[in-house]
Computed example of a mutant assay.
Amino acid sequence: MNPDPSPPAIACIIVAAGRGLRAGGDIPKQYREIGGRSVLARTLSVFLGEAELAQLVVVIGADDADLFAQAIADLPRARLGAAVIGGETRQDSVRAGLQALAAQGFDGIVLVHDAARPFVTGELIRRAIAAVAHVPGAVPALPVTDTIKRTDGQGRVVETPRRETLISVQTPQAFAFAPLLAAHDAAAAGGQHGFTDDAALLEWAGHPVAIFPGDPANVKLTHPQDFAVPPAPSSPLGVRVATGYDVHAFADGDHIWLGGVRIPHERGVLAHSDGDVALHALTDALLGALAEGDIGTHFPPSDPRWKGAASDQFLAFAAERLRLRGGRIDFLDLTIVCEAPRIGPHRDAIRARIAEIAGIRPDQVAIKATTSEAMGFTGRREGLAALATATLRLPETE
């Protein structure tokens, strides 16, 4: 019997050769700073945090070598190769990145991501990799909530497509390497230069493209207002403290998620997402301190996009909202209430994972566990609950 084949190598092309004129500023938008760090550095740091990625290829503008060097100065270089010079269009730049990988004999899965999407998460990257396992291409998609009109170019509406058939797509898009390179080469040879993303090019070449759930926080920085500067660090910082609470009933299953850690258990939980009460409570605590609603405001359970969704993206979203407002987390305190499973053996792993998601140190996270002395729904082993407190600082406004 033949052994299982090795998993395919995975590489990522970060497209950073554009000029970003609509965003304003005197340098390309991928080198502008948000919260004291360049957009490109933020983007790269997320991908470098994914161990599955063997290599990152960054495609830059011909005149941007110095800006690129500054952007990556504090990043690990082991998987970050020399920059590749892009072309006149995004299509040309992606092809240059593909050719650089081909010259190294690469043949596996390739992700293509826009540098100007710095709020991408590790969870979305992992979804992209999983989605392309059995198809030539896969793209993250969001349902369209606005009514879309098609016009004749003279200010007249000629069609109103059914909204339920429309999606908007994001990056990272994932592809089998050989078909994507072949499609790019064929388009270049045939003078086809109008493709705005790689999925469209693969479709043109006759290959099917699948979709997987995108992330509404994974926005592309495009306009000047997207770079709105938060209050200056010298502004007085006010301390805010808020709490969060979540509860889920047990259901059939063989594991639960707590603090982003999968814990084997004789039951699962009944939930629309993955039912991680710890991350849900922490998310509500952060959003409460920001006075920006709660988890249901931003990720409503009625939305099919969040069915089975990993909850790390919810906490990452709340933490990023805080950073964009010039704030920082001082401490996260979490109490988990359940009769089982035992939390102690998983405490350090949960602390580390929460710290990773929120972008803080593990010593800024406390995990406590207790039972309810056989009283109430937790005491009857019908479910579990979590109570969270977030202490943070936020610039004061007049």
Rank of each mutant, 00 (worst) to 15 (best):
271 A>D: 07
360 I>Q: 06
94 V>R: 00
383 G>T: 09
55 Q>M: 10
233 P>T: 05
221 L>R: 04
64 D>F: 01
258 L>Y: 02
35 G>I: 04
377 F>G: 00
1 M>W: 10
272 H>S: 11
354 I>N: 01
18 G>D: 06
216 P>V: 08
130 A>D: 13
238 G>D: 12
343 I>C: 04
9 A>G: 13
359 G>W: 11
168 S>M: 10
376 G>C: 07
31 Y>E: 06
380 R>Q: 15
204 W>M: 07
364 Q>Y: 08
372 S>Q: 13
116 A>W: 02
126 R>N: 15
24 G>V: 12
48 L>G: 12
175 F>P: 05
168 S>E: 08
313 Q>H: 06
342 R>G: 06
9 A>E: 14
305 R>S: 09
353 R>H: 07
327 G>Y: 05
154 Q>D: 14
133 A>T: 11
104 Q>R: 15
78 A>E: 15
100 A>M: 04
14 I>K: 03
199 A>Y: 00
239 V>M: 14
229 V>P: 01
290 L>C: 01
162 R>D: 13
221 L>P: 01
241 V>I: 15
15 V>D: 05
324 L>F: 00
362 P>I: 02
394 L>V: 13
20 G>C: 11
38 S>W: 04
230 P>I: 07
167 I>L: 09
331 F>D: 09
218 N>F: 04
245 Y>I: 07
31 Y>P: 07
170 Q>I: 03
277 V>N: 08
